[in-house]
Design a protein around this nucleic acid. Structure first.
Lengths: 202, 202
DNA sequence: GCCCACATGTAATCAGTTACATGATTCT
DNA sequence: AGAATCATGTAACTGATTACATGTGGGC
């Protein structure tokens, strides 16, 4: 319930994780455990969080008045808490959404490519061949999910779960990009000579 | 120098940042200051680090015997140290390079898209239109750099700086992916109706 | 009886950012 | 005289992972 008098939410400018949880809760009320499951897909392709990070963050959101919770008797020693977004929480989320993000991407596989010439070419080529294979599998999986979503009209921006579709489409684009790049790089390292894009047949 | 008796390097399994610095140092010896500059491009498109993180990490690498340093008189109150990779450091780097990476990507802009329906559609469409514009500019920049590199034969996998070219090509692929996705998403949010890929003309 | 799913928390550690701190040289 | 570049470090804090800790109910 958290009936606080002073509005902390103005001073407490939430963390990115906090907004991620609010986004998940706009789909409907959930427990910390359920949020841990829901963050896995499709959001998990571009954002992850463990339960050990989620539970304290939910407590902070509740203290700020951005979510409230109802307690039921839980299976374990502690009570089970179901969280829901408050109007203040939704307002905070809406304000955050339209701020242009600045965070740089971090890609370990690209970092390894930077030092490609220091490694054994055969082993390195295998690494990028495996990556290309993995992206093929992921792409098939994502496109299958996307087709299912289109079938139920989730590609319509007025659908309440349109965001799931948008994230999935980013997954499709990303994996296509990774696939082309990894195939090209593997080809370069395998042959020891420059390869042009498109030269690497599928 | 760091003439340690026991080989710490086996137990001290380095951090990702450590390997990133070793990768940079394979281009030639450098000071901490130079590494902070060099990490900006092209590696900075996919990996960043501030000087406050680099200096302590260089000290750890030196303690592990993976780099050594020579001191010169510096401009400030402290001595300037130029670092170089040791054979042990190169071996550690080579071992790390061929391990398949597991780290998930994190994309704040995709997270925001997940909650797109909670925001004002006009403001949200503007966000992704701006992103599409930014990716256009970055793409032009990256392709210009790539053309310069090809002109000097840096697209050859035997060229010592081939890694710079490989990272840049990932930048090209990524920005193309972001561009297509952002244009599609902006179109969806602007019109309020589903848009297919390719429908959004450039 | 054992493993799995449900369910919630804390502690220790690692990674990364922001801010503090110093001081020489060169350009405008 | 002031700003920018060169140059190196530390401290405080935030973000995220790994590991510790507890306990129920259901299926094999």
């Amino acid at each position: 319930m958290a009936a606080v008098e002073g509005d902390d939410s103005a001073t407490t400018g939430g963390s990115t994780l906090g907004y991620a949880l609010l986004s998940l809760l706009t789909r409907g009320p959930a427990t910390g455990y359920q949020l841990t499951q829901q963050v896995k897909a499709p959001l998990g392709h571009f954002w992850t969080a463990r339960h050990s990070q989620i539970y304290p963050e939910l407590a902070r959101l509740a203290a700020a008045g951005w979510v409230d919770s109802v307690e039921q008797a839980g299976p374990g020693p502690r009570a089970k808490k179901t969280y829901a977004v408050t109007p203040a929480g939704l307002a905070a989320l809406r304000a955050w959404l339209v701020i242009p993000p600045t965070a740089q991407p971090r890609s370990e596989i690209t970092l390894k490519a930077y030092a490609a010439t220091s490694a054994d070419p055969t082993a390195m080529a295998a690494l990028y061949t495996d990556l290309a294979d993995r992206s093929t599998r992921l792409l098939a999986e994502y496109e299958h999910d996307a087709a299912r979503m289109r079938a139920v009209g989730q590609d319509d921006p007025t659908h309440p779960r349109f965001g799931n579709y948008a994230v999935l489409m980013m997954g499709v684009e990303s994996q296509r990009a990774v696939h082309r790049w990894a195939r090209w790089l593997a080809s370069c390292l395998r042959t020891g000579r420059p390869a042009a894009y498109g030269e690497t047949a599928d």
